[in-house]
């Protein structure tokens, strides 16, 4: 048998010891931060010096998708792993979706909001090249729209289907293939040719946005309660 989800409280003595240890650790860390003085100057000068070669004008996007692409590649891979972990098993009958809601306010709001959110998501993706924004923000926003739509129960995202699985893997696939393709030309993995860097980054970001949004919607969909508990309503 498993542990209970709301496990037992620790004994009082142990709790006191743990609290004291945590308080001491926190105090020591705070003292270190205060005593260590101002942080060393960051990498902003280096990033600014190389920004012209990165293909984008927004330093954060440049770091994410050019200077430290491996971070982002692995992050997209982490998302794919989590998506695989929470995905419904193939061949298993799909759970019925939430019962379609009759809430006219919700439906009307979603009819208004979702198109706007999709446009704003595309804008965020585009504007990420030279202002705050980018693939993660756009993907999260689109996922929010997807969650809103699935709350109504009028549509259901079925991630058991093969095309949906392809969408989940699209980001990682595009990322890796692009990195390998530019390696053929420049000889280094992820070393974009300077002239084409902007277009390549936008291309990768677009694919990553779609995958991130799909993954987050899948994560939400795997957590919503099965419909039978709600259909038994009045």
């Amino acid at each position: 048998m498993f542990h209970k989800l709301d496990g037992a409280k620790l004994p009082l003595g142990l709790r006191l010891i743990c609290s004291a240890a945590i308080a001491a650790l926190t105090a020591v860390l705070i003292a270190i931060v205060i005593l260590s003085g101002p942080a060393a100057p960051g990498l902003q000068a280096e990033v600014a010096a190389q920004l012209a070669r990165s293909g984008v004008d927004n330093p954060v996007t440049a770091v994410l998708l050019n200077f430290r692409s491996y971070d982002t590649l692995l992050e997209v891979a982490v998302l794919l792993v989590v998506a695989v972990a929470t995905m419904p098993a193939p061949g298993r009958r799909l759970r019925p979706a939430l019962a379609p809601t009759g809430d006219m306010v919700l439906i009307g709001l979603i009819d208004l909001v979702v198109p706007v959110v999709v446009v704003v998501g595309a804008y965020l993706l585009w504007v990420g090249a030279y202002a705050p924004g980018g693939a993660f923000q756009a993907g999260a926003l689109l996922a929010g729209a997807g969650v809103l739509v699935s709350i109504t129960g009028r549509f259901q995202f079925s991630f058991g289907a093969l095309p949906a699985r392809a969408i989940l893997a699209l980001g990682l696939l595009t990322f890796t293939v692009t990195a390998a393709a530019v390696a053929l030309q420049t000889g280094v993995f992820f070393q974009y040719p300077t002239a084409a860097a902007g277009v390549l980054i936008l291309f990768i970001e677009a694919a990553a946005t779609i995958s991130i949004a799909a993954t987050l919607v899948l994560l939400y969909g795997s957590l919503v309660p099965p419909a039978r508990e709600q259909e038994s309503g009045p």
Binding site: G134, Q137, A140, A143, L219, P226
Partner: peptide, 25 residues
């Protein structure tokens, strides 16, 4: 600001939706 946009969409929006879905289930 980049982090703020992501946090507003994910930290305040999606995480809450996930937690509430699990809680409800």
């Amino acid at each position: 600001v980049d982090v703020a946009i992501a946090e507003a969409a994910i930290g305040a929006g999606l995480t809450g939706a996930l937690l509430l879905a699990a809680w409800r289930r």
